[in-house]
Computed example of a mutant assay.
Amino acid sequence: MPTQGNPIATSAYIHIPFCRRRCFYCDFPISVLGDRVRGEESAMIREYLGYLHQEICRSPCQASPLTTIFFGGGTPSLLSPAQVAAILDLLQKCMGIDPQAEISLEVDPGTFSRSQLRGYAQAGVNRLSLGVQAFQDPLLQVCGRSHQRSDIDKAAADIHEAGFENWSLDLISGLPGQTLDHWQESLNQAIALEPRHISAYDLVVEPVTVFGKRYQPDVPPLPSHDLASAMYQMAHDTLTSAGFDHYEISNYGQPGYHCRHNQVYWRNQPYYGFGMGATSYLGQRRLSRPRTRQAYYAWVDHLPQNLEECPVDSQSDRWLETLMLGLRLAEGLSLDALRQEFPAPWINQLIKAAQPHITAGHLYFEGDRLALRVTEGFLVSNSIILSLWNSQA
């Protein structure tokens, strides 16, 4: 019987680590296949799915059906509908899937057909996430993306024609050479395609990426800090005016279409992770899989001992994760929920440490909830969270 501090996981992330090429900003664990290879034609993909199936079958699972499933990558739309269906059938057999579950699949323009989308829907997928990133061909080329603007329009048309009402579109701000006009155009074009959800991420330059070798943050051709902040404010103003709720730092959804799966992460709730490089959070243990295929295959051969050997998160680690993730949401943190898991002096110190930020207009209390102001607090969220964390030392 799970305790209050150790709830049952009802969400699963499935990592599909294959792409046609590696984007210049990407540090995800992936394998590059080239532009012509697809799921059932690729021996590499078939081998990987065999190990993925083994991991799902051999993992210790709690007796509760899944309410959210997310196929991420990589490019899951390189898989055939039959391959996606086989994974969902296995999850149904091993864990059960709630009839009302949100089942998301990431897709890239130029990697799927309308009939393929219909096959995903028949398999049980009911939400898509389209990786657009930008609407200008020069910016797409700068990013190393494999698609063009024309592919975006076709992808959106196919999504609508295939009957997907619940779908999201991803954009990135702060790209090399990107201007405010570029960003406004991308936001307007995204809205015109009528997704129910839009993710607008600020570029993070990771050291091991092509961008990390070419550019330095806040140095041209990357936007200045002030320009990046202006892009953030522009996204908020444009998308909220179009009827999207700014419900998380980088995410906007129409009412009823906030991503249920990602809210599991932001609320620091347990979840399963399956596949190369995936992380699970079960029994207050975070377990990361190896980031290369061969190491992952060897890891699968030693299940289920892997999870049992993983240390339990300390209370202070859980406290930091809860603050860091929960304050990303516009709804913020429930003090009542915090009091059920963490010592009262920690809560009291949090309230005390929050006061200067409340005075500055970045945080606010509403009832029992502590939240960042949208957008004033979101813009400086990292420094606020660090300040709150340091106050506990």
Rank of each mutant, 00 (worst) to 15 (best):
R196T: 12
L193K: 03
S229G: 15
E366S: 12
S104K: 01
Q141M: 15
I159S: 06
A230N: 06
R46E: 15
Q122M: 11
P270S: 08
G273P: 07
A371P: 00
T292F: 04
S150G: 10
R285N: 13
I172E: 02
A228N: 15
P255T: 05
R114H: 14
L78N: 05
D336Y: 09
Q340D: 14
L91S: 00
A9W: 01
S241I: 05
F365S: 13
R289I: 08
T240W: 01
W183T: 01
G96R: 04
A121E: 06
S387D: 03
P220D: 12
G361V: 07
S199V: 06
R369N: 00
Q83G: 01
F365I: 14
E41P: 10
L52C: 11
V204H: 04
L105D: 02
L338G: 08
F274G: 06
G361M: 04
S314K: 08
Q100Y: 04
V210S: 09
P17T: 07
Q141N: 14
R118G: 14
Y120E: 07
Q269L: 11
D301Y: 13
S77W: 00
S113N: 04
H160F: 02
A360M: 00
D245R: 14
Y296N: 08
T359E: 14
V219S: 10
N268G: 14
S288E: 04
